[in-house]
Structures are given as C-alpha cells and as structure tokens.
Simulated assay, not measured.
Amino acid sequence: MKVRIKFSKTGSMKFIGHLDVMRYFQKAFRRCEINVSYSQGFNRHQVMSFAQPLGVGLTSEGEYLDAQLESSESSEEMIEKINHVITDEIQVLSFKLLPEDSKPAMSLVACADYRVELKDNYEAVEDFEIRFYDFYHQDTIEIEKKSKKSSTIMDIKPLIYEYKFEQEGLFLKVAAGSVNNLKPDLIMEAFYQFLGKELSPFSYQYHRIDLYAQKEDRFISLDDFGVNMKEGLSGEL
C-alpha cells in the first residue's frame, strides 16, 4: 500500500539537510517497527520518497513523504506511533492512504505557499507594503539565477502567483517543482535590488506552508490526495 505522510520541520531542525531528514525517518520507521516495504537487490533500502527538498534554514508545516508499506494501523495510531519516537521539532501531521495508481508527490508538485518574516534586530523596509506593490507591478522582474556552471537572467514575475500581507508577514504563492521552482529568498533578493539595497542573507525567516499539485486551473494540496484510515490495513488485501 502507498501512504503519504505530511510533517512539520521547525526549531533547530531547520539546520538539518534533506539527506539527513531522509535518514532520520528511515531510523524512526525502524525504531517504531513500521512494516515498510524494501527494494529488491543487493543494496536493499526502504521504499520512500519526498515531495521536494526543503532548503537548509527554512522551517515548514507542509513537508511530504511517500512510503510503501506492507501493512498499517489506523492513521491516528500511526501518527501517534511515529511522533512518539521523533523530536518535537519534526512532527507528523497527517498519515493518509493513497490510491494504488497515485503518482509520487515529487512528480506532482507545481506550487508552494511561503511566509516571509523579518527576524528580530533587523531593520524593516520603510513603507514595505507600498514598495513591494511597486516592485511586483513592474512589467518584468529580472534577476540573475546562478548555478555551479553558469548564470542566466530570468523574469520571475510569471512564477509569482499571489502575494498578500498578513499579520505574520508576507504571504507568497509561487511556482515549485522540477520544471519551474522559485525560492522565496530569490524574490526578496530581487526586491532589495529594486530598492537599491543589499539583502542580508539572515534577515528573513522563510517558512513553507504547503505544497500543491495542479489540476486543470486550480491547485490542490498534496494532503488532499489521500484518505484517513480508520482501521488497520494489510498491503495484501
């Protein structure tokens, strides 16, 4: 059976990289004796995959792990079992059974929500909302995107689907996934370039709220693809 686990990543765990998070869950599954499926061959490993790696330093309440199990208890029991053996700074929020023909979360991701908050002891931009409005309503928002081998100038405006100001900070809905992937810190870098200011890499906290797939003209949370299990199930059923 295929399951999708939604989890949060907060506190000091934001400094743990993607590969370490993967190993963390592998050990947690063994510790609480989850009946996870293993690959075949010489170097057998647990069958699991993540929707999209979260950058080091970012926090999140919308991370996703897909796993294949041989059997499972109810969703409520599985959440309690996993959370019992892991830190409070990584917590399972939902545990859902997926349809047998469901695609991996990593292939579905098309959009992400983020919240951007100014950290304490950093100077706020004067008239932030007005200046960000002017920034967003340019015809184009061009920025240099660098890789290990090259750099390109790209227009990121089409990849910003929505923005709004909330009490907690700046909300952003942006393109995400393997084809187009816009990180919130790149938007803030472009914004500070627009202001003629230098952005400190540590001045803002970036928090991922959720990940979405695209279905026709709307976005659907990856959490909505599965269903809660009220009773335990066996993969042989």
Rank of each mutant, 00 (worst) to 15 (best):
S39V: 09
S39K: 04
Q40N: 15
Q40S: 15
G41N: 10
G41M: 09
F42V: 12
F42T: 04
N43W: 00
N43V: 07
N43T: 09
Q46A: 09
Q46L: 13
Q46F: 07
Q46C: 05
V47D: 00
S49H: 06
F50S: 05
F50E: 06
F50Q: 03
A51G: 10
Q52M: 14
L54V: 10
G55F: 00
V56H: 07
G57T: 10
L58V: 04
L58K: 08
T59A: 12
T59C: 12
T59N: 11
S60P: 07
S60E: 07
S60C: 09
E61G: 14
E63K: 06
Y64S: 00
L65G: 01
Q68P: 01
Q68V: 14
L69P: 03
E70F: 10
S71A: 15
S72Q: 03
S72V: 03
E76D: 02
M78S: 09
M78N: 09
M78R: 04
M78K: 05
I79G: 00
E80W: 02
H84C: 09
H84I: 02
H84T: 13
H84R: 15
V85E: 09
T87Q: 00
T87M: 00
T87E: 03
D88R: 13
D88S: 15
E89D: 15
I90K: 05
I90P: 05
Q91P: 08
V92D: 05
L93G: 11
F95E: 09
F95Q: 07
K96D: 11
P99H: 11
P99V: 00
E100R: 00
D101A: 11
D101H: 13
S102T: 12
